[in-house]
Amino acid sequence: MIGALVAGQVGSGGASLSSYESIATASGTGSSGIITFSVIPSTFKHLQIRGINRSTTAGVSFSQLNFTCNGDTGNNYAQHYLKGDGSAVSASGYATGGYGGILLYNCMARAGMASGIMGTFVIDILDYGSTSKYKTVRVLCGGDTNGAGEIGINSGLWLSTSAISSLSVIATAGNFTTDTSIALYGIKEA
């Protein structure tokens, strides 16, 4: 992940010289299935979203999250994924498919799982401020319940040259529980 490349350093005075900064954090409310970051400074080169999450909807298998840019829920996204469920591996993808976003497969825990079980994900968004490039993202996500689990990697593409000004993580089943926490970080370049 990008973070490994931008590990902070400590100067002689002890002040952090890290190029990795926290922008905002959002928690689930139990009554909404969407978390949006709408104040994204233009001073960074890349973004990273890190989160733990759980759905209010019953079920014992992990469900999907959807990820959108600038509120665009049109067929303007493409992706590929590789995922494993503890026994089988599968891979697929789509071009400008009908999901209206980039799916994060099977990384949302559900209310039927044991208390405290959370799904998790890290999303890297490269060169989010570019006005000449489509936007590329990469994802590592998964969850484990001690006996069942899902782990996956994704590449995603938003086919737009617009600078990203907002990002949304959307539950495809139910709402985010109150112990859901999703944080946005910015990474500067020299």
């Binding site: 902070g8 400590v10 900064e21 001073t43 970080y185």
Partner: peptide, 10 residues
């Protein structure tokens, strides 16, 4: 606004 630098060595 950003809350400041993080990703600090421990």
């Amino acid at each position: 606004m950003p809350a400041g630098a993080t990703y600090e060595p421990i």
